[in-house]
Design a protein around this nucleic acid. Structure first.
Length: 568
RNA sequence: GGCGCGGUAGCUCAGUUGGUUAGAGCGAACGACUCAUAAUCGUUAGGUCGGGAGUUCAAAUCUCCCCCACGCCA
């Protein structure tokens, strides 16, 4: 029994995420959390919404709501959908929480105390009409290079030339369209990451067991060009964590907030405080402070590859820079992207399936199974409706669902709604030996967080049951030796229980149905022979409804059409 | 243009430190079975491992060059 802290990258607040976002961090994190809990470990699994920054302000304005209200509402929406997918967070927090505000300010104060903060005065574009400084990408104008009339302040999308907002001809605000822009001086705080370069490099170098994807991205940022650069950690915005030096005011920084990428990862820690304050647990520092019990915690982070630099460098720079005994991440599991039918998922164009839509058309377990068994671990992966249909129909309906169906219905028609009595023989012993190996392989992949391989191993365990039934053919056996057929059926019913237990991390709802039908517990097997002897003769069960109805060709065609693009 | 991850059977992917006839699932063909969601089980077919050169007794696996896809950055 060990202690595991697990966090998923925190999704941004403005809108509902698509399936690519889901499989990129929350879903595999949930798989791992569920597996560790099932196998008897102590787990704290945290996630939250990332609520600060300009996009949230603009989304709120578009919705005609105050930003705090908008965020509170969207947090509820995301929480409900996460629940629908069975994401078993111990707490789903908010980066806008009072806990995170205080902790973020405390970190900034501490970093200032140890001399890792410097003040920089820079020139930025200010929109008089909007009454605010504009980030580069909210300024558009004509490209001085190619004449494209919708070039953004940071880059021209037409000729790809990198720009400064001041380069643009006839620049205007994309928020209001205002043209009364002026350049004003403004002061910001920079985290001196360059001072921590060697420390970070040494730390990254020590992580020899991390995925190549993770370390290569980190090394690129550490060594590319002039190496790791100092980073601005404040912004001229209203919505965010007010810049303070601990709990004191920060002279000259009035009216400014911390950059969203400074406060968002700190929410991983603050979320544990929220978890405690919500009455769900106690002693949060036992998970986060190595001087207060967290020295035996294994901390695993899950995220998409776009988040890797912030988790391998920026956030560790905050932690290491503080020189305080905060828990550092032990393992980063990063994912590539899931593509949709030959292209990218697109939030702006509504291309692909979004989490709420997915739950509208099919049970969560179906999505969980397909996404996890195709997790983009080694490279980008591809979602197509054809593959989705054949894969889930085959795996969930034909291999697993039909197994449950055939054995329970056979038992009911030839025996009763109770486990029949019969002694196991050589064939059953052989299956037990085979499954002992297969379960060990499954667990090895789960321990290593090899998601696809674990799915394949689990499927092989399901298939073994069908192989056994086909070879032993109780429907034939029963004609000459009823006791032997009874043993075969008893084993089959016990297999349903075993499958229910082992499959729970992937398909928790179907697993629950299986276990409830078998009227049994969910104790993780340590000995397969014992596990397959759990349901004793006479144990009553019920024949469940089919676990999963297949996706029809008509449905596939309709959905492919519906999700091709055009969502608002 | 630079950098990064990839390019293995029709499809989706495995292939650990180079070593016997390159693997799995799906799909296909054929066969078996009939308890079951026309499900299941078995057998077979199919790849000059992106292209070229090199190192080696031996390369999908190492080196160099090139091509392609995707991504990041200038």
């Amino acid at each position: 029994m060990a202690r595991h802290l697990i966090t998923s990258a925190i999704p941004y607040i403005n809108g509902i995420k698509h399936l690519g976002n889901l499989i990129g961090s929350q879903l595999p994190a949930d798989l791992y959390a569920r597996y560790l809990r099932s196998t008897g470990h102590e787990v704290l699994f945290l996630c939250a919404t990332d609520e600060h920054g300009t996009p949230a302000e603009l989304a709120a304005a578009k919705a005609g709501q105050p930003v705090a209200e908008y965020c509170a509402e969207m947090h509820q929406v995301q929480a409900r959908i996460a629940d629908g997918f069975g994401l078993s967070f111990d707490h789903f927090g908010r980066s806008s929480s009072p806990q995170n505000h205080a902790l973020t300010q405390a970190f900034a104060g501490r970093l200032n105390e140890v001399g890792l903060i410097r003040e920089v005065t820079e020139e930025q574009v200010y929109s008089v009409t909007d009454g605010r400084f504009l980030p580069d990408r909210y300024i558009e104008g004509t490209c001085p290079n190619c004449g494209f009339d919708s070039a953004r302040g940071d880059q021209c999308d037409n000729c790809t030339k990198q720009l400064d907002p001041t380069d643009l001809i006839e620049p205007h605000s994309t928020i209001s369209g205002a043209t009364d822009l002026e350049v004003r001086a403004t002061k910001h705080l920079y985290l001196m990451q360059s001072n921590l370069r060697d420390t970070l490099q040494e730390w990254i170098n020590s992580k020899t067991d991390w995925p190549i994807l993770t370390t290569s991205i980190a090394n690129k940022w550490l060594n590319d060009g002039d190496g790791l650069q100092d980073r601005g950690i404040t912004r001229d915005l209203d919505w965010g964590v007010a810049v303070k030096d601990g709990d004191r005011d920060w002279p000259g920084m009035e009216g400014k907030v911390f950059y969203v990428w400074f406060d968002a990862p700190i929410e991983y820690i603050a979320c544990a405080q929220e978890w405690q304050d919500a009455g769900k647990g106690a002693d949060w520092e036992r998970w986060w402070r190595t001087d207060k019990g967290a020295d035996d915690v294994t901390y695993t982070q899950f995220m998409g590859k776009d988040n890797v630099p912030f988790h391998t460098l920026s956030f560790p720079a905050t932690i290491l820079g503080s020189d305080q005994p905060w828990k550092l991440v032990d393992y980063i599991k990063s994912f590539n992207y899931l593509n949709y039918d030959g292209g990218q998922f697109s939030t702006s164009r509504g291309r692909g399936v979004f989490m709420d839509q997915a739950l509208d058309i099919l049970p969560a377990d179906v999505w969980r199974w397909w996404l996890l068994s195709h997790a983009p671990e080694s490279s980008d992966a591809e979602f197509t409706w054809e593959a989705f249909q054949t894969d889930v129909n085959k795996d969930l309906a034909d291999v697993l669902g039909n197994f449950v169906s055939r054995i329970t219905k056979f038992c009911r028609s030839k025996f009763s709604d109770a486990v029949p009595d019969g002694a196991y023989g050589p064939a059953e012993d052989a299956l037990i030996a085979d499954l002992t190996e297969k379960v060990a392989a499954y667990q090895a992949h789960m321990d290593a967080i090899e998601v696809r391989k674990a799915a394949a191993a689990l499927r092989a365990i399901w298939v073994a049951g069908n192989e056994y039934l086909q070879a032993e053919a109780p429907w034939t056996t029963i004609k000459e030796d009823e006791a032997k057929a009874a043993a075969q059926v008893r084993l089959g019913l016990n297999l349903i229980r075993l499958y229910g237990v082992l499959s729970a991390p992937f398909i928790p709802t179907m697993s629950k149905t299986m276990l409830e039908s078998m009227n049994t517990d969910d104790a993780w097997p340590t000995d397969i022979a014992a596990a397959l002897d759990t349901l004793k003769p006479g144990h009553a069960f019920t024949v469940p409804e089919n676990l999963f109805s297949k996706i029809t060709d008509d449905q596939r065609v309709e959905w492919a059409e519906r999700f091709a693009g055009g969502r608002d």
